[in-house]
Amino acid sequence: MIFLDFILDIVGYTTTRLLLPTLTFQKVKVDVLSSDEACFNWLGFKRLPNGALLCDADSAGWIGAFLADRPRRGFSQLDASGTVRRSP
C-alpha cells in the first residue's frame, strides 16, 4: 500500500497539477496536498467563486496516475533514416 500511495501522491498528483490547468485553459485548478478545503462533490470537484473548478488532491492523484499510464498511440516518430513512422 505504501507504493500505491507514493504513486498516487507523488506521480499522479504532480502530473495532474501540471497538466490539468494547462489542458483546461486554467478552468480547472488542483488543490494543494495539505489543504483544509471541504464540500467537494462525489467526483472530487467543487466550484470556486470565480467560476473555475477545484479538484481535490485525492482525485488529482487518480487522474494523474491514469494520464501517466496511458499508452502513447498515434504519435509520429522519426527513425534513424529520418523518415516519419506512426506508432501502432
Rank of each mutant, 00 (worst) to 15 (best):
G61Q: 02
F75D: 14
T14R: 01
F6V: 11
L33A: 10
W42N: 05
G51R: 01
L19S: 03
P88E: 12
N41T: 02
S81L: 14
G44L: 04
P21I: 04
T24A: 03
K29Y: 02
A65I: 06
V32Y: 12
L48V: 06
A52C: 11
V84L: 13
N50K: 04
V30W: 04
Q77Y: 12
E37G: 02
F45H: 07
L18E: 10
P88F: 05
G61N: 07
L67N: 00
Q77C: 08
P88H: 09
F3S: 15
A57L: 01
N50P: 00
M1T: 15
R70V: 10
S34L: 15
P49M: 04
T22R: 14
Q26M: 03
D79H: 09
C55L: 12
L18Q: 09
S35N: 09
A38H: 13
R73D: 10
T15R: 02
F45S: 05
W62Y: 08
F25G: 09
D36I: 09
S59G: 11
L54Y: 05
D56W: 01
K29H: 06
F40W: 05
T22Q: 10
Q77N: 12
L53F: 04
V84T: 10
C39G: 13
F66G: 09
R85I: 13
L54W: 01
A57Q: 13
P88L: 02
S81Y: 10
G61A: 04
I63V: 12
S59N: 04
T83E: 13
D69H: 08
R47P: 00
R85P: 00
A65Q: 01
L67C: 08
M1K: 07
I2S: 15
L53T: 00
S35T: 09
S59T: 11
R47A: 08
L23A: 03
T15F: 08
Q77V: 13
I10C: 12
S76M: 10
W62V: 13
F66T: 09
A80Q: 14
